[in-house]
């Protein structure tokens, strides 16, 4: 059975921007986020993030599944694909258009 690989995401409190966990904090682009190859590493990252929510920089951290496709990391579920890029019906908005709410 293929191993589940995951990433950690949240939203920035002030702006709502989608964030991805990086070793040194949070980043805006999925491609820049850290990928957890085993469940223990993912759970540890989530626990650390949950503890950091008291700093009031971000809200609602959670893990989601990703996979490798053509050499890139992409989310497994449509929901996370859309969160990472922006609405499919307005390609001029969201990260797909280089826009952040920050």
């Amino acid at each position: 059975m293929a191993q589940t690989i995951q990433m950690l995401t949240a939203n920035r409190l002030k702006t709502g921007d989608v964030l991805y966990r990086h070793v040194s904090g949070w980043v805006l682009m999925l491609a820049d986020g850290e990928v957890y190859l085993d469940a223990a590493a993912a759970d540890a990252a989530l626990a650390a993030a949950q503890a950091e929510t008291v700093q009031n920089d971000f809200v609602a951290p959670y893990l989601f599944e990703v996979r490798e496709s053509a050499g890139r990391i992409v989310p497994v579920k449509e929901r996370e694909i859309i969160r990472a890029a922006g609405p499919t019906v307005h390609p001029h908005t969201g990260k797909q258009a280089g826009q952040y709410n920050a």
Binding site: N11, T15, G16, D17, A60, R79, I82, R83, G86
Partner: peptide, 8 residues
């Protein structure tokens, strides 16, 4: 005010 997929 809701928090949705991309923003509030």
């Amino acid at each position: 005010l809701y928090l949705q997929l991309h923003a509030y």
